[in-house]
């Protein structure tokens, strides 16, 4: 799972008011190179919750993102490269996502988060 997806995911447990962002427990992170698309990054920048994104990147061991960002930074190639790398090239392979409100762990195996809820969580 990439941080792109992590930034969109929230905990769906019954009764949870703010299930975003899920805290990342990383056991294994892998990198896969993909081609950069500046237009896509600009569109995504509007949607990304930056604070959650930076925290997630730290949890994945990547510390090159500025703590604060505004759209003027999208003119900088260096910024775009980092944004691209953190958003699309880092994969959480093994670990867990943790609901910020209940502490419930959603295990991640082979890159796939198990978001299935127990019956009493629906």
């Amino acid at each position: 799972m990439r941080l792109l997806t992590h930034n969109m995911l929230s905990s769906n447990i019954k009764g949870v008011v703010n299930g975003f962002p899920l805290r990342i427990e990383a056991e294994k992170v892998v990198e896969k190179t993909v081609e950069m698309n500046g237009e896509f990054l600009k569109k995504m920048f509007e949607k990304i919750d930056w604070k959650a994104f930076v925290d997630a990147s730290w949890a994945m061991g990547y510390t090159e993102l500025p703590e604060e960002a505004d759209s003027s930074m999208l003119d900088s190639d260096e910024f775009l490269n980092r944004f691209h790398h953190a958003l699309l090239e880092l994969h959480l392979e093994e670990g867990a996502l943790v609901c910020p409100e209940t502490g419930r762990r959603f295990p991640v195996n082979k890159g796939i988060p198990n978001m299935l809820l127990h019956e009493d969580e629906v």
Binding site: L4, T5, M8, L9, F20, L117
Partner: peptide, 18 residues
Amino acid sequence: DLLLGDMGQGLGLRPGVI
């Protein structure tokens, strides 16, 4: 990216992002 989940339990995704 793949998620193991049951659509009948609802999607846990932030509003307006897809």
